[in-house]
């Protein structure tokens, strides 16, 4: 058993926090390993001394607000970090949206049929060109161009 684990068990035992079965097993282990008993007695001595200090020195346990300040600071830090994260996410989403929109617009401009592209050019070989319909600016119509050749 690791010394740290044994120490933890011995402290729990001394403070009455071990289940009875575990406490009995630990007692049996300490009986078989007397070298570990000295560790246990030193821990008991430390617990006794700590107990004495708590009883004799109430001035060490006065309210100072220190733990609250620590806790309050951590909470405010956490909420601040959350706010920054949300703001960063909104900015990122905005930038991504902007690029996505411009990319889509670019792609829409690029995706035209070769035939339509051909007809938009003013070429003597063009057989069709595109005209807006009157009153319906959203719709376009191919118009046959009489060949000059």
């Amino acid at each position: 058993m690791k010394p740290e684990s044994l120490d933890a068990l011995m402290i729990d035992h001394a403070l009455g926090e071990l289940p009875r079965e575990v406490a009995e097993l630990l007692d049996a282990y300490l009986l078989e390993n007397p070298e570990e008993s000295s560790r246990a007695s030193l821990l008991r001595e430390a617990i006794g001394a700590t107990d004495s200090v708590v009883q004799r020195r109430p001035d060490l346990f006065r309210e100072t607000g220190e733990s609250r300040i620590e806790k309050g600071f951590m909470l405010s830090l956490f909420s601040r970090m959350q706010t920054v994260a949300v703001a960063a996410f909104i900015c990122l989403a905005g930038v991504a949206g902007f690029f996505l929109k411009s990319e889509m617009a670019k792609q829409q401009g690029e995706i035209q049929s070769p035939a339509l592209l051909a007809t938009t050019r003013e070429s003597p070989w063009a057989r069709y060109h595109i005209e807006d319909s009157v009153g319906e600016p959203e719709r376009i119509f191919p118009v046959r161009v009489e060949s000059q050749h």
């Binding site: 006794g48 001394a49 700590t50 004495s52 200090v53 708590v54 020195r57 060490l60």
Partner: peptide, 11 residues
């Protein structure tokens, strides 16, 4: 001495 040593740690 024991209590004095513990006090040094606890404070």
């Amino acid at each position: 001495e024991r209590v004095r040593a513990a006090t040094e740690v606890i404070e």
